[in-house]
Design a protein around this nucleic acid. Structure first.
Lengths: 356, 356
DNA sequence: CCGTTTTCAGGAAGCGGTTACTGAATCATT
DNA sequence: AATGATTCAGTAACCGCTTCCTGAAAACGG
C-alpha cells in the first residue's frame, strides 16, 4: 500500500471523506450527499460539514468518485502536435466547449505516429472518457480504415465514442462522429479568385497524394481550373508538406529551375504560403506585384503577410466535435456527420494580371 | 474482435477483470498480477490470460487502478490559452516530456481568469496529478502571491507540487518549483543590438506595468540604454498587450500623432512586432529601410517577417518544468528554480542607422 | 394526544482493481 | 523416501466514494 509517509519531499496524506465525516460528527454518507449536489440536509448539519471540509481543505478523490458511479465527465483530444496553429485552434475549441459543458479535457499528442495514436486511444479508453476526438491529416488507406474501425467499435463497446475531425468518414457501419471542413469548396474559391484576376498559370504548393486534406484542396483547385476552362498542367502541382519550411523549399526549388512559368500561387495552407513568399522575396520577386498568392486557413501568418486566404473557423471545428459527441451520446441513433464551411478573405496578396 | 452486439446509443458494459479471470479460468489476482508487470506466472496461465484479454478487448479501469494504489501517473498544465504560440510551444514541451516519462498530460485553459485558474487547480488536485504546471504572464501583486502560496501548500499537502513557468518565484517558504526565462537578458541583447547599429530613439512596444514578463523585458531595454549611455525617454515606452492587434494599434496610434521620433522598434514579443510592421507598411514605411525592428520569442511570425528577434526555447521550458517536477518528487529538498537562457537571432529587420 | 407522514441521517454493499498473506503442488536435497 | 525449499495461484482486505435501503425523530393531522 502507499505507505509513502516520511519521504523527503511532501507526502502528507490527503484527507478523506471519512475524516471530514468524523470531524463534522456525521456519517460519510451524509458528507457525500451534501457535497454532491442538492440534498435536503438540516442547515446545521450542512454547515458543520462545510466547515470540516474547509478546515481540512478537502477535495474529493476523483478516481474513487468515478469508480463509485458518478464518473467525472471528460473528453479526450488526440492530435499530432499542439504547435501547429491549425491544431492549436481546434484544440482550443475543444477545450472551450468541453469546459462549457462542465467536463475536463484530456489532451494527447502523437507526432503523427500511428503507434502512439493507438497507445493514446487505449489510454483514453482506460480513463473512461466520454469521447475521443482524433484530429489530423492522414493517409486514408486500407490500414487506416481498419484501425479507425477498431477504435470506433472498441469505444462504442464501452459507451464512449470516436470523433473524427478533418478526417474522412468511415462508412455507415462504423459508429464514429465526423466533423469535416470544406477543403474542396475552399480551394475552389481560392483558385477561382486567382482565375478571375486573370491568372491562368497557378502554382499549387503542397499536394500530397494520399493525404485527404491535401487531396481535397488539390481537387478544389483542379475543379476551379476546369470550371474556368483553363487547362490543367500537372507540372504546376508541387508536392510537399504543410509546413513553412516546405513552402520555402518548394518555391526555392521551383525558382532555381529558372522557369518562371506561373503568375500566381495557391498554397494549400498559410504556412506554405509564408515560406513561399519568403522564397519569392529572396529572389527579388514581389507579392503581389510580380506574383499573386492565396493561402488556406486564415491563421496567424496571414495577418503578417496580409495574405488573401480561405477562412475556416478552426475553433468551431473543435467546439462542434465536442457538441456533436455529447449530443450523440444523449440521443443515440446514427452518428452525425457535418461539414464546416469556409469563405475567402480578401487581403492584398492578389493583383489582377496585366494583360500585355 | 469486439463485436459487442447491437450498437447505437452505446452503453454496453465494459468488461472487468473478473470476466477476464472467469474466461481464463483463474483468479482475478492472477490476472491483475500478470497484467501489471512482471509476475512469474506459468507460461500456460499467462497465455490463457492474455488470450482472454484479447478476446474481451479488455482494458483496465484507470480509476479503479488509481484507487487501489498504483496511481496512473499524470501531470497537469494550466495555461491561458493554447492558441498563443508561446503557450502552445510550452505545452508541446510539457506534453513531450510527460509522454517520455510515461505519464499522461492533462491540460486546462483559463483564459487568464483567476477564477477558472482556481477551479482548474482544484480539478487537478482531485485528479491526483503529480504536478500542476501553471504557465503565463500575470500581475504579481499581493493577491497573486497569496493565491499561489495557497495552491502550493494545498498541492504539497497531498504529495503533489506546483510548478510556476514564466512566473515570478514566491519566496523560500513556498514549496513551488520555478522555471523562468531570461526576459531581462534577452531584452538587453535585443536593445543593445539596435543601439550598436546606431539607433538611439528606440520605441518599446508592449510595456504593461505589473505584468512580470513585460516588466522584465522593459527592464532589459532600459538597462541596455543605460549601458550605452543613451538617455531614457519614457515617452518611447508604449503600453499594450502582447498581441498582434495590439502591436498594430500601438504603432498606428503612434504614427497618427505625426511624430516620427524613433528610428527603431523593440517589440516585447513577435506578435507585437508583426502588428507594428503591418502598421508601418500601411503608412508607407519600410522595414528595415526606414525603421528597424527587433522582436522577442522567435516564434512563427519571425520567419514570415524575417525578423531579428530573441530566441527562446519554449519547448525546453515545458520539458524542464516536467523534468524538475519529477526530479523534485524523487529527491525532495528545496524546490529547484532555474532560468532558461536566450540568444539573439539575426535576420534582416535591422539596418545600421545612417549618420547624416 | 396518538397515529401517520416527512425529514434527515446512518449502515452497508458495492464500483474494479491491487497486494499481503496463505496454501497446495512441484522440485531439489540428503 | 521423507523433508525442506520453491513456484505459482487463490483468498480476502482494502482504496475512497456513492447510493439503496432503513429507521428514528420531528412535524402534521384530526
Amino acid at each position: 500500500m502507499a505507505r509513502r509517509a516520511s519521504e523527503s519531499g511532501g507526502g502528507q496524506r490527503r484527507s478523506t471523506i471519512r475524516e471530514v465525516a468524523a470531524r463534522a460528527g456525521v456519517s460519510v454518507a451524509t458528507v457525500s450527499r451534501i457535497l454532491s449536489g442538492d440534498y435536503p440536509a438540516a442547515p446545521a448539519t450542512r454547515k458543520r460539514v462545510m466547515r470540516a471540509v474547509e478546515e481540512l481543505d478537502y477535495v474529493a478523490n476523483a478516481h474513487a468518485r468515478a469508480l463509485a458511479g458518478t464518473s467525472a465527465k471528460s473528453i479526450a483530444i488526440v492530435l499530432n502536435s499542439v504547435v501547429s496553429p491549425h491544431y492549436a485552434h481546434v484544440a482550443q475549441g475543444v477545450e472551450a466547449q468541453t469546459a462549457a459543458e462542465g467536463r475536463l479535457c484530456l489532451i494527447g499528442t502523437t507526432g503523427g505516429d500511428p503507434e502512439r495514436e493507438l497507445a493514446m486511444v487505449r489510454f483514453m479508453r482506460e480513463q473512461h472518457t466520454e469521447a475521443v476526438i482524433l484530429v489530423g491529416n492522414v493517409v486514408a488507406d486500407e490500414r487506416y480504415h481498419e484501425r479507425m474501425s477498431r477504435y470506433a467499435h472498441a469505444l462504442a463497446a464501452i459507451g464512449s465514442r470516436l470523433v473524427l475531425c478533418g478526417r474522412p468518414p468511415l462508412g455507415p457501419d462504423v459508429p464514429a462522429v465526423v466533423v469535416e471542413y470544406d477543403n474542396v469548396g475552399g480551394a475552389h474559391s481560392a483558385t477561382s479568385h486567382l482565375l478571375s484576376a486573370g491568372h491562368e498559370r497557378i502554382l499549387c504548393l503542397g499536394s500530397r497524394p494520399g493525404y485527404t486534406t491535401a487531396e481535397g484542396r488539390v481537387a478544389g483547385y483542379r475543379r476551379a481550373l476546369a470550371a474556368h476552362r483553363v487547362p490543367h498542367d500537372p507540372a504546376l502541382e508541387v508536392e510537399g508538406m504543410m509546413l513553412w519550411h516546405e513552402g520555402y523549399r518548394m518555391m526555392k526549388e521551383r525558382l532555381a529551375t529558372g522557369r518562371r512559368d506561373f503568375t500566381a500561387v495557391f498554397a494549400l495552407n498559410d504556412l506554405i504560403a509564408g515560406g513561399a513568399v519568403r522564397a519569392l522575396t529572396e529572389n527579388g520577386l514581389k507579392v503581389p506585384d510580380d506574383v499573386s498568392v492565396v493561402g488556406f486557413d486564415d491563421l496567424q501568418p496571414s495577418l503578417d503577410l496580409d495574405l488573401t486566404t480561405v477562412h475556416m473557423s478552426h475553433e468551431e471545428i473543435g467546439r462542434t466535435a465536442v457538441r456533436l459527441a455529447l449530443e450523440h451520446e444523449a440521443r443515440g441513433g446514427t452518428p452525425p456527420h457535418v461539414m464546416i464551411g469556409t469563405h475567402l478573405v480578401i487581403r492584398s496578396s492578389v493583383r489582377p494580371r496585366e494583360v500585355s
